[in-house]
Design a protein around this nucleic acid. Sequence first.
DNA 1: TAGTGGTCTAGACCACAAG
DNA 2: TTGTGGTCTAGACCACTAA
Lengths: 239, 239
Amino acid sequence: MGTTATEAVPEPKYWQLRTVLVRTIDQEFSTGEVLPNERDLAARFGVARATLRQALDQLELEGRLVRRRGIGTLIAAPRMGIPVAEASSRDTWRIVDCGLGPAPAAVAATLGLDATDEVHTVRRVRMMAGQAVGTETLFVPVRVMPHVPGFLAESSRARAVLKQFQALPIEGESRAVELGVAEEEQARLLERPPGIPVLVLTARYAGESGTLAVATSTYRADTCKLTFGDTGVEVRAAS
Amino acid sequence: MGTTATEAVPEPKYWQLRTVLVRTIDQEFSTGEVLPNERDLAARFGVARATLRQALDQLELEGRLVRRRGIGTLIAAPRMGIPVAEASSRDTWRIVDCGLGPAPAAVAATLGLDATDEVHTVRRVRMMAGQAVGTETLFVPVRVMPHVPGFLAESSRARAVLKQFQALPIEGESRAVELGVAEEEQARLLERPPGIPVLVLTARYAGESGTLAVATSTYRADTCKLTFGDTGVEVRAAS
DNA sequence: TAGTGGTCTAGACCACAAG
DNA sequence: TTGTGGTCTAGACCACTAA
């Protein structure tokens, strides 16, 4: 037959489609512009809508597109660089709540606590350019921070915990970044539906005697780029 | 009517399904075990196979499941912690190739090069526990590293570049992590199909006179957790 | 009200691995 | 050959936005 054997397994349509769309987007569209709707695009490329959506899913995961129900599919703005390692000179955080009680099992293990130990728990949302980009939950054992006044209102206690945290004798920090999806709680704080991909950052703050505190953060993977060290690097892609 | 308005917008089926599956997996399965096949699972939960797959997609993105064509769906092992910031005491890398020529536009901009400047380009694959977990492409301008012998074979030249890189007067490093998908090139090196989610790490190495080198890496997001600082933190999830 | 993306279905065929 | 996950289709209905 006339079929050449070189392309034994052709690439899936949605991946070919993605390649075409990447080129089209880079060449003919700019930030904020609206793509044709999914039904038209699917018809134009001669595929089912589900297949087109599979390609758009990829581009959304890469942060190139934003889809808004009722509106359309837009070209996304470049990701924001979020400084993550510094003591945060000028940051905007919104405190959500502050509790006192047992820690989740995983946190307790890292902090070296037993079941009866309690921790201060402060949750806050990180704002940038007017939108919620990340959530953070800070865990500090009560035995590390015993002098938080108990009579304070919740928001005042949160501020007290954060202030005392700044003063802790931190000797070393370690962090880990991995991929996750936002559950109901985080999704609500990020003002997005559950299931959106997030970068999960876990930070451990060590003192002489061991781990003093643990923080777990989630950042919107579609719009955020976590930066460590100096300012964000401008490199994006490089084959 | 009898409908209560409290649950105005019910959660999508695939998300409910994910919640059920998370519980089932955590309670009744352990690493390496095989789930029932997709058609049976879909039937058991009374949904279409596509809907079930949407739930499994989420769990795969979280690194809880691994799907193997022709085999089945397995419970994934915990993610490997990949140290990323250190000078890499004991690491296994496999050199792929080494070139000399103009840099990609984004890299050239970061390095402050004009169109005529050339860079050494070394690509290598990072191995862990016998499998490829990440790729790295290192870019060093020729003017920063002018004394690489030109008569060497490719693999020798790669080693020479890496060795001289270790000796560069690095004064500061900055890094950024974001989500991406593996294109053909990276996917091949990672021995996975194109489109798999990857953590894209860009590192900039600064000297007194400016940026001396740039490296862009991609790590399999399903199996890797990038760690900075000391050893990996053991915390996983925490509402 | 019209148009958009989000969800869901029921079915088909393909590529891959194992017996 | 059988059973698995991977891809693709054609269609339906829903939720949200804006005119």
